[in-house]
Every structure is written in structure tokens, then in C-alpha cells.
Amino acid sequence: MTDIMVEVSGLTRRFDVSSPWLNRLLQREPRRILTAVDDVSFSIARGSTYALVGESGSGKSTIAKLVLGLLKPTAGQVLVDGSDLSATATAASDALRRRVQMIFQDPYASLNPRWRVGDIISEPIEVFGLEPDAGARARRVAELLDQVGLAASDATKFPHQFSGGQRQRIGIARALASRPEFIVCDEPTSALDVSVQAQVLNLMRDLQSELGLTYLFISHDLSVVRYMADQVGVLYLGRLVETATRDALFEAPCHPYTRMLLDAAPRIDGFGREHQTDGGEIPDPINPPSGCHYHPRCALATERCRVEVPAVSNLEGRQVVCHEATQILSGSVDL
């Protein structure tokens, strides 16, 4: 039995994106419900990295907010180390909040431009009352800056005095300030240049092994996911379509969508490569296709796929949500 840090079960979140009721009444519009996350379950082992990968509309950022308790789920629950973060404010959930942190995508929007770096990093320390003494707090800020590769003197500067990569380091220092155990990373390097991305990814890997952190790593970039993840979940229109270990997923993807996604990702050694694209695009998430959401784009789709939502099949240590999964894995169908 592995040591589970985060347990997500049956997580569902719907948004009401209807027009105001007067407009609905006048234009005879029905209510419009967007199911951003649809019955998603996964668990993250302590000290490991679970990556959620998906394109736009896949619901990956909504899952991040749900896991952090910034949004309430419509159904299902998130347990962090056995307790529910979305429970109403109690002493237990306050204590839990300290142990959960986040690294954001946009290093320009995630730091308050009017605050000094030192104040930004010491805010969580102050809020959780970790260092009551101001001098100790300043020393802790210096230690954190050092940990992410910045200088202690940077504490007096403002965010605009730093480059994107350095800002992301400041964001990481803030995330580490409350000594968390679990960090949600929402596209942490997608706003960065590649050479800087490598610095930040390596830093995050080093910190993980140094501090025993657990990551939920959210990304649209398969190359970054391959570099960071232990376990990968592939999302399509709010549903998990395939979950597998990193190696299993990249070496032998099973779900037709995963296969298409892997083929479409540009490769730095794919000179003159031709893509086998399906020509389709992500459908409107408010009116998603019936049955398996991927069926209109899928080469293997049958009548059953159009009607019936596939169940999860457990195959050789991976979970695949596809009617044809067994056949695909056995190699009896060709994509």
C-alpha cells in the first residue's frame, strides 16, 4: 500500500453560464450549464508528481482550484492527507491550508506589483504565525530566497525589477514559505522561455527531492510533463481519459486521444515529420458530444461510442476510458 497524500474522488464541477434570467426569458434561451470537471478521480502518492495534461477546455485549471479549496465541488471530494480542505473554516482546515500551496502560471500577475519581494514572501509566514519575531521572519525570507537561487538583498526590491524566470523563483519561494507538503503547480513554466524553463523545472525537481514535496503538476506541454511526472492523467473535456505511469503513457499510449496528442506534439528531432492529425477541434464544452466525448474525432469510433459513456478499464496498471481499450492494447486494431 503506497502512502497516499492526495485523494480525489468523483470530483465534479458545473458552472452556470446562462445569460441573466430576463434575457433568457425574452430570448427563450435554456439554461446553459458547463460541466468543467466531470467525475474525476485520482490519487497522488506522497513525494511524487502527478501530472494532469490537457488542451484548452479540459478542466485542468478548474481541478487545480478545486483541489486547493478555492472552488467548491458540485460533487465529489478532495482529501489531503485524509482531511477535507473544502470543509468550512475550522482549526483543522486552517492547519491543512498551511500544508497546501500553489505555484502560478503567470509570473507577472502572481506577485503583487506594489509589494516588496520580502513582504510577498513573508506574508504566508505571518498569516500562519510561523515566525512571530520580525527578525526571524527576515532571516527566513533570506533563507527562502537563497533556496530558490536569489540573493537575500533581493527582498527589498519590487517584482518589476526582476525577469520572468526570477519572478517565478519568487513565486516558488512564497509557495515554500509556509513549509507546505503538497504544491499545486498550474502551468508553472508555460510563460517562460525554454532556457529559463529548464532552470525552473530543475529547481522544482531539486526542491521536491530535498523537501519531500508532493506535486500536482498541470500542463498542456507533453514534453514538460514527461520531464516532471511520475504519474500522468490525460484530460479531455473535463473527463480523465487515461491515467498511467509516465513511462507507460509515453512509450505505449492507449487512448486514441492520448495517441493523437503525442503525435501532434512537435519534437525537436522530428525533422520534416508529417502529422496524422484528425482534422478536428475541441468541441463546445457546453454541448459536448454524446457518449465518449472524443468520438467525433476518433478513427475507431463505433455506434456504441456515440451512445454509451465508456467505463474505466484497468489494464496493466493503467486506467483507460475507452470501449476499444483492450483491443488497442492487444494490438488487434490499428490506428
Binding site: 486547493l68 500553489m102 502560478f104 502572481s110 506577485l111 503583487n112 510577498i120 506574508e123 498569516v127
Partner: peptide, 24 residues
């Protein structure tokens, strides 16, 4: 996101309004 970060550590709306949003 900096407001999200403040909410994440349990800052109350009043503190977010006057400490984070007001200067901006």
C-alpha cells in the same frame, strides 16, 4: 493570481481589499 495566492493562505476579504487591491 496574487489575489488567489492571498485567498489560498486564508486572508479575509477585508485584508485582500485594503492590503492587496487598494495599492493597485
Amino acid at each position: 493570481d496574487y489575489v488567489q495566492a492571498a485567498r489560498l493562505i486564508g486572508r479575509k476579504p477585508r485584508q485582500i481589499l485594503f492590503r492587496h487591491l487598494l495599492p493597485n
